[in-house]
Design a protein around this nucleic acid. Structure first.
Length: 500
RNA sequence: GCCCCCAUCGUCUAGUGGACUAGGACACUGGCCUUUCACGCCGGCGGCAGGGGUUCAAAUCCCCUUGGGGGUGCCA
């Protein structure tokens, strides 16, 4: 629970006018794979904060993991940000005067500051091999690094032997490190539990904690909004800021996004739903994803949920960020996407749906597809669902639930209705939804039957099912030829052969 | 093990000591509308983890317990 006074304390924010205009936040992913939902949510919050404060949103690539980083993933990051509409003011894909913005291009910089820390005596070389260090680690005292107090002679000796050396921070063994988190209030760690973490790897690459601090400082980052999993890194980073004599940024640790089991939603769980790309591929609109993600861990403080980007920017504030983890609810985002889809203007829906459909191997040249598409607009939650529903009408007639179908089709008078329909469509060479609807009305009038004997039975006869798109749209889509064929097939089915 | 964070319907959340008979949304469910299918609308179900304090008054403040999560890398 946060204390009120902490919320109001104007430590770094809000008290001075210039603070407001100097807000600079960054999204700093590592290019090691498909972009993750949790990651992109962090980006969304950073972007929202920057825009709400009139600040800058930067993109920095943290590619210091030589094993896993790859340039192709950098492209993916850019593409995903663009898709979601998170425009970059500075950094990779945005230019700017504090570059380079790719950490592997900043190696000299880290080296320089590492040397500075060495001169200050805040660090020490470590000659342990990674495995060795693992063994030496004592679960009770994680700071227990065997190289911490090596004599200068010993250091000299090991260096001469060419033993690979890393650089570690000499963590204080008493006192405490604390900081004021904008989401959680004060967070404090006893210094003795902070181990002698590495700053530079033996490869000459910086570690995350070191590079991050150097870059955030040099790039004048004012607020660090990142996942809660970074809380335990924060005291280490603060120690570096202090050693360098730098002012740390404001930290805001965002609650984690959880899966149904309340575990952190992560790539390794293998769930496709952990990736942003899955949502694009499943036909979610970017505005839906943005809206839904913004609401995971943040609330404007009122009942409104469907909001425009502008509204969210206007209402966003660090104070309204929640402190507890949030389960990602696939049902809810599905519903939300349905709302966005239904709210689309006819024309826009058509364009966007067509663009998606053509990527799904559907024949978008067929202009009759439009009839179905529009009839389905209000019935689907995703464009993928739209594609699936449309494809069903490409398939040959089948009766998945023959019992039901028979019950409807065997009512007295239905046969007459179907025959009449068959005859009527025989007289026209094309159909549109209006004409189709009129045809059915004519039948009702001429045969003096109720709609009950027409709509549902015709639906079954033409589609084999009891639910689906608007009937006249289906008829227009199928066209006279297919309608006649399907009615014949239905008659066969009723006589007992085939189609089960 | 140690450190840190968190705790309101199944899920996302509103709630900053009295306006709470705890509000909204998803899901589920009953109905209305539509002579098809939906959309939509109206209703229902369902929650302050437990225990102690503080206070005239606690979902709200404090403590403990329990539960959940995260971290504990020369990953980020």
């Amino acid at each position: 629970m946060r204390l009120l006074w902490l919320r109001l304390l104007p430590i770094y924010t809000g008290d001075r006018e210039e603070d407001k205009v100097s807000v600079r936040v960054r999204f700093a992913p590592s290019p090691t794979g498909q972009i993750h939902i949790g990651n992109i949510r962090t980006a969304v919050f950073n972007w929202l904060f920057a825009r709400s404060q009139g600040g800058k949103f930067l993109l920095r690539v943290e590619d210091t993991d030589q094993e896993r980083s790859s340039e192709e993933f950098e492209e993916i990051i850019l593409k995903e940000l663009r898709w979601l509409g998170l425009d970059i003011d500075e950094g990779i894909g945005g230019g700017g005067e504090y570059g380079p913005y790719r950490q592997t291009h900043r190696l000299k910089i880290y080296k320089k500051y590492a040397e500075e820390l060495q001169e200050k005596g805040c660090v020490f070389p470590c000659f342990c091999s990674p495995d060795e260090f693992e063994k030496e680690k004592n679960p009770e005292h994680s700071y227990n690094d065997p190289c911490r107090d090596l004599s200068p002679d010993k250091v000299e000796e090991l260096r001469n032997k060419g033993v690979p050396e890393a650089l570690r921070f000499r963590s204080p063994r008493q006192g405490k490190v604390s900081f004021l988190d904008s989401v959680h209030g004060e967070i404090a760690f006893q210094s003795q539990v902070i181990d002698d973490f590495a700053l530079m790897k033996s490869t000459g690459y910086p570690t995350y904690n070191f590079a991050c601090v150097v870059d955030d400082h040099l790039m004048k980052i004012s607020h660090v909004l990142r996942g809660e999993d970074h809380i335990s890194n924060t005291p280490k980073q603060i120690l570096i800021y202090e050693a360098m004599g730098w002012q740390p940024p404001v930290f805001a640790h965002l609650p984690l996004i959880l899966d149904k089991k309340r575990r952190r939603l992560k790539k390794r769980s293998g769930q496709q739903e952990a990736f942003l790309s899955s949502y694009r591929n499943a036909g979610y609109l970017p505005e839906t994803v943005f809206n839904y993600l913004a609401l995971l861990g943040w609330s404007p403080g009122e009942d409104k949920e469907i909001m425009s980007r502008e509204e969210m920017v206007e209402k966003f504030s660090l104070e309204k960020i929640n402190e507890s983890g949030a389960v990602f609810d696939i049902e809810k985002i599905k519903w939300m996407n349905g709302v966005y889809l239904r709210n689309l203007e006819r024309k826009e829906f058509r364009e966007r749906a067509l663009a998606f459909l053509s990527g799904q191997g559907l024949d978008t040249e067929n202009e009759k597809l439009i009839f179905l598409m529009e009839a389905l607009q209000e019935k689907v939650n995703t464009l993928k669902e739209l594609a699936q529903k449309i494809s069903e009408y490409f398939e040959p007639l089948a009766f998945p639930d023959p019992e039901d179908a028979r019950q409807v089709l065997q009512q007295d008078g239905v046969e007459k209705v179907l025959s009449s329909l068959k005859a009527k469509v025989g007289e026209v060479d094309d159909l549109n939804p209006d004409r189709a609807a009129n045809l059915l009305k004519e039948i009702i009038k001429e045969l003096q039957v109720g709609g009950k004997l027409v709509y549902k039975p015709v639906r079954y006869a033409l589609t084999g099912k009891g639910t689906g798109a608007d009937l006249s749209a289906i008829m227009a889509y199928l066209g006279p030829e297919n309608i006649r064929m399907r009615i014949d097939e239905t008659f066969k089915f009723l006589k007992g052969d085939a189609h089960e």
